[in-house]
Design a protein around this nucleic acid. Structure first.
Lengths: 358, 358
DNA sequence: AAACCTATGGTAAACGTTTTCCAACCAGCC
DNA sequence: GGCTGGTTGGAAAACGTTTACCATAGGTTT
């Protein structure tokens, strides 16, 4: 491949001049020389070597996205949002899966340091804020997305989890439910706590007592949702509705209910959280609190760009409003669901650019 | 951050010596000096600068994964397989979404060239083999995964799509179906053609005539599956089973059937292709031809490692056997499905490391 | 004792950029 | 005609490595 030297030679100028024209430097160069350089660039098919550039500039124009597991259906949409704005600004994004494993996480951070990654976006639970603090201490730009963390003032883009869960619960209350259960996420993760608080508060505001029998902790997997419902069934806990802390658990719960012969939403109504792609495809279509995942990815990357450009990391939290999308599993659309084709419901929000395609 | 120079100074040796010990070079260095160097490394927290290393070695230890859209549920598992073996070998993976857009694809390839990416894995449809050929011409290692391409002898890891579709169709035939329809993928993509051929061949082997009224072309989205079914319904085409070229279309088809009041599998049996995570979670659970996605990712990355190590690109195709996983939507488990809890069916294959978690 | 290995360490030239100086030139001005 | 000052362009020093080549010092061989 042609180097800047080859171009300089062919154009009969110095490498400095070539560098100046290809970089639109402030240092002026005459139109004629510029022309000559451009011609040489064209003729040789010259492409700047980003590696050399990085070495000189001490910045790699690369960011890392750290997720627990990209095959979790919640993350790809975020990844897309990030990748889209990153590529618009000439940044490449490195994909890192940690599987919630501390060792892997540490190994990655070391790698990122070695590679002079310019910034990192964390979309991970990690109650272990040690790394984050270390990154911050080194002055490396960091932003959290979708997952907040205690005790470290780090920029983050989030959804109002409390309010989302509150809305979901309030909706069920409006529909007349009084025995509403909650499948919570792991108590160690902040967003799970907040969703739980939202649920509890809605109940309290309706004058209903909190009952610990009505909440079980899951692990954000379908299987966790299944187990929660089985436990309730076994103990003959009476309930007419469930708000799950994420869609996967809601879907698992629906399975267990169905297996036990309970109708959804007639015997028990279910609402989830996240609005993953398949929420609209399960049967009955899942009512859920939608997170603007793609948008969150975009915002996170935008904030990271600001930080990389030198903005001081203020520990600023950008919090978006989640949106309750009502489908069939909560019973509000029961009439529609049996009367007409559920097609429109299945198409749901639409236009948010989050639909998978292949 | 400490550089190799700092380490050399502190250990009282030359930078060459430091480089030799940290790289386990063949050039021997005495145990005492090694000790001194290692101590200095430790004391200074020295980490090699991969950028400088890349510049010198003319290799970035980075590979790119090019997918149409990471939020398509089919790709994340592949990405995981790739990322896992890449990180084991000290490679980082760059994530690139093309959205099937030629311009974006080209822009990416240019970027990758500028960044001296060592190899690229394509998981994309692209009937446009121009880029691929260009990459090959430049001698850059390339491997295709899950998507084959005509007219370019490029290494690929695939599933036997013909056989998969054949098996799916044969299974329906065995269950007594005679009017089996097919929702094909876009005719421009090779795997779609092969699946269609598998379907047609199974019919032919059973002595059934091919009927063009029974096949419609979709676009691999749920909506495409929905539209195909609606068209058949509208024309009053009689059919008792559908084999879809992927799960998303199968799920869309199920929705449309349900909306029209047809029972699955009682009125119409459905089988899909891919076995995305949600195939086991829809209701009824989808019978499908499973692709070992994670494994395919691993194999693709392994092959890429070989190529990057200098193996000559033989255009070798690694083809895996897909596996028909029988759940409820085909009717083979009808007895089970109504008699007992479908829990076991929903858990399905398991242990393949492809389940999402959060 | 000369010649020759071998083991160990250092020197310095790359790798391909960017950027800080500095030089040359040309106007315009007193 | 000497000065000032603005425009263009080049030389060269980094950035942090790796590695080919050379140097030294012992030891071994003849």
């Amino acid at each position: 491949m042609a180097t800047i030297r080859d171009v300089a030679r062919r154009a009969g100028v110095s490498v400095a001049t070539v560098s100046r024209v290809v970089n639109h430097s402030a240092h002026r160069v005459s139109p004629q020389t510029r022309r000559r350089v451009l011609d040489a660039v064209e003729a040789l098919g010259y492409q700047v070597n980003v590696i050399a550039q990085s070495l000189k500039k001490r910045a790699s124009r690369t960011v890392a996205l750290i997720v627990p597991d990209i095959s979790n259906p919640f993350f790809p949409a975020i990844a897309r949002g990030i990748e889209d704005v990153a590529s618009q600004h000439g940044y490449a994004v490195l994909l890192c899966n940690t599987y919630e494993d501390l060792a892997r996480e540490r190994a990655y951070l070391e790698l990122l340091r070695k590679r002079w990654v310019d910034g990192v976006i964390f979309a991970t639970a990690g109650s272990n804020t040690a790394h984050l603090r270390a990154l911050r201490r080194e002055g490396r730009p960091v932003v959290l997305v979708a997952r907040d963390v205690d005790g470290a003032p780090i920029d983050a883009v989030l959804v109002d989890n409390f309010h989302g869960a509150y809305q979901a619960t309030a909706h069920l209350l409006r529909l007349g439910h009084r025995r509403i259960a909650h499948i919570a996420g792991p108590a160690s993760v902040r967003v799970a706590q907040e969703r739980r608080r939202g649920y509890e508060r809605a109940l309290a505001d309706a004058g209903l007592p909190a009952s610990s029998a009505l909440v079980r902790e899951g692990d954000f997997t379908a299987d966790g949702g299944r187990r929660a419902v089985e436990a309730w069934l076994q103990r003959r806990v009476s309930l007419t509705a469930i708000v799950a802390a994420n869609d996967l658990m809601a879907i698992g719960a629906m399975e267990a209910l169905r297996a036990a012969g309970r109708g959804i939403p007639d015997d028990v109504a279910v609402v989830g959280f996240d609005d993953i792609t398949f929420a609209s495809l399960v049967q009955p279509a899942l009512t859920t609190v939608a997170q603007p995942k793609y948008r969150m990815g975009q915002l996170a990357m935008q904030r990271l760009l600001e930080l990389m450009a030198g903005a001081s990391p203020a520990g600023r939290r950008i919090v978006l409003e989640p949106q309750l999308v009502i489908r069939e599993s909560c019973g509000a659309r029961r009439a529609v669901a049996v009367g007409a084709a559920p097609l429109d419901a299945a198409h749901a929000p639409g236009g948010n650019g989050e639909e998978g395609r292949r």
